[in-house]
Design a binder for these strands. Structure first.
Lengths: 213, 213
DNA sequence: GGCCAAGTAATCAAACTTGACTAGCGTCGA
DNA sequence: TCGACGCTAGTCAAGTTTGATTACTTGGCC
């Protein structure tokens, strides 16, 4: 029976990662302010119900939490038509936090939800920033595959066969992701997508709008 | 902005799926009775900390919940050495539930944790049962890939480019899993692994032990 | 012989997620 | 005109997961 090395290291850098948080912050920011139901609709129109399986309750919770943390501001709106609602708007800290979350999601392996959310919010980053972080992911995946391969050459003898098969599947997924990440990185280098520092990006448009208000 | 079709259908067949539940039940059953810490150690010795990211608290909670649901029995043991502990043992209902969970995990796509847990507990099933359910997974994956391919031929025009890339990754994962599942099914057909109905299985040994008690 | 490190066993509060529920308003058909 | 249905918007209690913490024992080593 294995020994337990109970590691009680705190997270470096502070707050927990969370795909929900990133998506909610991201949508509020992209829409330049939104209420809960809007976030909900937007998420599902992106087909997000499938890859991020976020339920309504979680969205409203995430919004309130983010507001309490100073990442969003709440503006109560009296119900002009229908029930009253709360408009959320991203603060500067909120935008910074969000960008950091996107970077994190690109880097971290073993967290598909977070990766998906980060990809959805990819245009929040500048082109070079995105490429750098995707390349870091590539490097990590390659390193993990090497470790994995070593482990499969010298398997632990009390590990059952079928558990080794799991490792096989795992490696397959890692290879798939590796290829995909490489090609994404390549496409970005070739100028694909409208990123934060490109003309016509959400940010350029947003700044433009702000100029007139 | 998409409309929300709020579907409030209840789960067919009853209880929620949960990888934690399956793993905890499975380990208790395989060990023929165990306390929390044992489950914890066993899980991590299987390298389970990586693919199932289950923390201690969840294990103890899952044990208590399962006991409350009549899937496990609790035998309080006074601490002969060390703090007092509780021994859990699987009931018949618990074993049945567990087998059902393994089947479910093999069938359901879009739930990697559950698949991993099911693979870990694969020898709980008879050979034909396991093959049947893995084949069902294969069929489902193939169907999903067809739908996906169709969707990518006629993409929704308000879906951003980078979201379509996500779909690409998704399809890649599905193909990887498909190949893996096919080969697992093949190996099982060729007699690989010791399954529940094979001589020398956990079940045969277990019955043998029971005969002498 | 005394004390520290590591192992054994589990608890707890806080945070998060879920599913079900509430409620106003519009509209379309009978 | 009325009522069933669906959309907009959100609350809430119950359940789950997490990370930290407690508490006791053994073994080693100075």
């Amino acid at each position: 029976m294995g020994k337990l090395a109970i590691e009680t290291r705190g997270l470096s850098g502070g707050g927990r990662v969370s795909a929900t948080k990133l998506l909610v912050l991201g949508i509020v920011h992209l829409s330049g302010g939104a209420h809960g139901y809007q976030v909900r609709s937007e998420l599902q129109s992106w087909g997000a119900e499938s890859w991020a399986k976020i339920k309504p309750g979680s969205i409203y919770h995430a919004l309130k939490k983010a507001a309490a943390d100073g990442l969003l501001t709440e503006h109560a709106e009296p119900g002009n038509s229908g029930p009253e609602r709360v408009l959320y708007r991203a603060t500067t800290r909120g935008r910074d936090e969000m960008v950091e979350l996107v970077r994190d999601g690109l880097r971290r392996t073993h967290d598909p939800d977070m990766l998906n959310a980060s990809i959805a919010m990819l245009p929040m980053l500048t082109r070079t920033d995105a490429i750098a972080h995707i390349n870091e992911r590539v490097a990590r995946l390659e390193a993990e595959l090497v470790v994995q391969a070593k482990w499969r050459e010298h398997p632990n003898r009390d590990t059952p066969e079928h558990v080794r098969d799991q490792a096989e599947l795992w490696a397959g997924h890692a290879r798939t992701e590796l290829e995909w990440a490489k090609s994404l990185s390549r496409r970005l280098s070739e100028g694909a997508y409208v990123m934060a520092d490109d003309p016509g990006s959400w940010r350029t448009v947003h700044d433009h709008l702000n100029m007139h208000s």
